[in-house]
Design a protein around this nucleic acid. Structure first.
Length: 215
DNA sequence: TAGTATCA
DNA sequence: ATGA
């Protein structure tokens, strides 16, 4: 039962996290046939890597990107770049299957016309985590954030505008999508350390896509 | 402060 | 496991 927010409901499942924030249970599942091969191609061209924070710590989550802009971090700070700093080449194009999934999920959550130009790919091995933070490196905060969960279940933290606000704990399963925007766009969020396990399709890992309009 | 460790 |  761990991570099963929506046990036996066959229809579109939604859980409100705020006025303009929600979880869409299992929303990504019908799209995965097109998404998984594309993911493989993206990671072949831009391998996952562990970024370093401005404070000098290596992140436990391994990251890559596709789309016109990619999120990166190093000692100089956080930013979006056109090129992969590791290869010097542009980030791989965002696969059409990725963009369709993101746009459909946003529309389902009430954000019509979402066109992401950035997809951050996060890979969580057991133990990997992401501490509470805000997404504030984008040019404007008009567009929502669309976050897709694949593989092992995880506990998502959804806090408030202030970092000290108590964060809700939301179990996320394979295929769940979280969308937040509008008045909820700058809410803090994170992921608890991933528990060990084995997923039938993805093995001992969790993959997360975070779609944004960064530029 | 997109981090970690330690200690209640 | 959870929070300071």
């Amino acid at each position: 039962m761990s991570g099963q927010l929506f046990p036996q409901d066959p229809t579109p499942r939604r859980l409100a996290l705020g006025p303009q924030a929600c979880v869409l249970g299992g929303f990504a599942l019908p799209h995965l046939g097109g998404v998984m091969p594309a993911l493989q191609a993206v990671l072949d061209a831009a391998p996952l890597r562990h970024l370093v924070t401005p404070g000098g710590f290596t992140m436990s989550v391994a990251m890559s990107n596709c789309g016109a802009l990619g999120w990166t971090s190093d000692r100089r700070g956080y930013r979006y770049t056109r090129d992969d700093p590791d290869s010097g080449r542009p980030w791989p194009d965002m696969p059409a299957a990725f963009e369709r999934l993101a746009t459909a999920a946003a529309a389902e959550a009430g954000f019509d016309g979402f066109v992401p130009d950035a997809c951050l790919i996060n890979r969580y091995a057991p133990g990997a985590r992401l501490s509470l933070h805000q997404d504030r490196d984008e040019r404007d905060f008009d567009a929502p954030i669309v976050s897709v969960s694949l593989g092992l279940p995880a506990t998502f933290l959804f806090g408030g505008l202030a970092r000290a606000d108590k964060a809700a704990r939301v179990p996320l399963a394979h295929g769940d999508v979280v969308v937040w925007g509008g008045v909820d766009r700058l809410r803090h969020h994170g992921v608890l350390p991933l528990k060990d396990g084995e997923h039938p399709q993805l093995g001992a890992q969790r993959i997360n896509f975070t779609f944004r309009k960064a530029g």
